[in-house]
Design a protein around this nucleic acid. Structure first.
Lengths: 248, 248
DNA sequence: CCAAAAGTGTTAGACCTACACCCATGA
DNA sequence: TCATGGGTGTAGGTCTAACACTTTTGG
């Protein structure tokens, strides 16, 4: 049975073309049905859609998420929603805040437990999204019209992400498996919204010991080819344990 | 009307006698009644108590909190619960995590949105707690038997607090208005669970510019009297904005 | 050979760590 | 006058910030 007062929403961040993007969708109850386990859940979701016409509008976008079924763990369900919507299994996913203002959703008292996910765009295939009418990446600085308090949720997610990348090496999850130092720097610049000094950035990042030199280089670029690095998961884990200063 | 699937709980930290304490209570529906707005809410709370005998046991303690009424904002209600239970108005209160494992409460599918509060013990008068059977401070290292997943919630709160005091000057809220540098250092030592070097600690803390010398000293102590400091709220705010490195 | 981005080193100042003794107070 | 905790300085090492030119690649 659906808990109609509780939903789970994911702010999915992706880093592509030197921009930070968010994945939004337009949901449709008929498509969601495949994802739900009982007829009853489906009927309840349908009622929620009927009461909120914005949910069906082609002009408004929403966060990927649904109401929480009573037989699902909160964290497990967030993961499941993300997996179904994106096809991705091993994703960095973090609960960051629960929103519960009284009128955040019209005609319904619902809290949403919000998560953010960091996605490596290499592995994201948008065709995998069987439960939505539309799914699309939007530049964080150029969001479309959104339903309810989605704007506020995204802004909060960005704020938390900004904090997190300064104290944890979480940002690596936004990059492809092999990346250049310039990509890494740009990612930090975009998230923190400030320019960084290239020489100092490289020194600092290389001193952390997180980088593994893959001995490969970019190819087919019209300039000196950059070296490709991957990052060392063991040292990453160790740094997370320690609690590190990642201020850049 | 009570949202029976959602509760709000506060992990209330206090720092007294060089120990970090948590305030727990034993709730009783008859006393909670005064706090609830409708008869219906009261009936619902009573049913929840009937289904969970541990809630009435004298041997088990719980976090201060109740189910969320549908007409209350989430954050506002957390504040209200805290205020009613402790009599305190201006308290540092922070939402830190929502717990939603499927069997966290027997016979009831309920999430709890958990907050932690930092309390200056000077202003805490335990007599003010009209809605509980019992309210008591417990040393964080010596907790009593607790109901449900309260232990896990407290552990999570402590972990978050530990993170927070390293990056924000939040810890000051645990001290009385005028405090000694030794108190401040002990507070950090207790929260971070490690010894700090006194000279280095003082240098670092004094360089931050947060401290105001009150030109007062301890009295009636059987050793050299320590200077009393207060902390500068404006610089505090400024540091919070900036995002600071408070690692100690 | 040109355009474009990759890659690199030094210096001055700030900050961090480790470490041991004298001081003020009340009993 | 003693016991107790308060209060202080220095030196060596590490980290940070500021700054400009050469290298490699494909077109």
């Amino acid at each position: 049975m659906i808990l109609k007062n509780i939903s789970v929403d994911c702010v999915i961040f992706g880093f592509r073309n030197d921009k930070l993007n968010v994945l939004l969708w337009q949901a449709e109850p008929e498509l969601l049905e495949k994802f739900l386990t009982t007829k009853e859940e489906y009927e309840q979701i349908k009622i929620i859609f009927e009461k909120n016409p914005a949910l069906r509008s082609d002009n408004y976008w929403g966060l990927i998420g649904t109401h929480l079924p009573s037989e699902e763990d909160l964290d497990g369900y967030a993961k499941k929603v993300l997996q179904t919507a994106t096809g991705l299994d091993e994703v960095y996913l973090k609960q960051f805040k629960t929103f519960g203002a009284i009128n955040r959703v019209p005609h319904l008292r619902a809290l949403t437990v919000a998560y953010y996910a960091l996605i490596n765009p290499d592995y994201h295939d948008l065709k995998l999204s069987p439960i939505a009418k539309a799914v699309k990446w939007f530049d964080i600085n150029n969001l479309p019209d959104v339903i309810f308090d989605v704007k506020e949720i995204i802004e909060n997610a960005l704020k938390k992400l900004r904090e997190e990348v300064q104290y944890h090496p979480a940002g690596f999850h936004l990059l492809p498996e092999k990346f250049t130092l310039t990509q890494l720097q740009t990612m930090y610049e975009v998230i923190l919204d400030k320019k960084l000094d290239t020489r100092n950035f490289r020194k600092k990042i290389q001193n952390m010991g997180l980088l593994i030199d893959t001995n490969q280089k970019q190819t087919h670029v019209a300039h000196r080819a950059a070296k490709l690095y991957s990052f060392d998961v063991n040292i990453y884990r160790h740094l997370v344990e320690e609690g590190l200063n990642f201020r850049i």
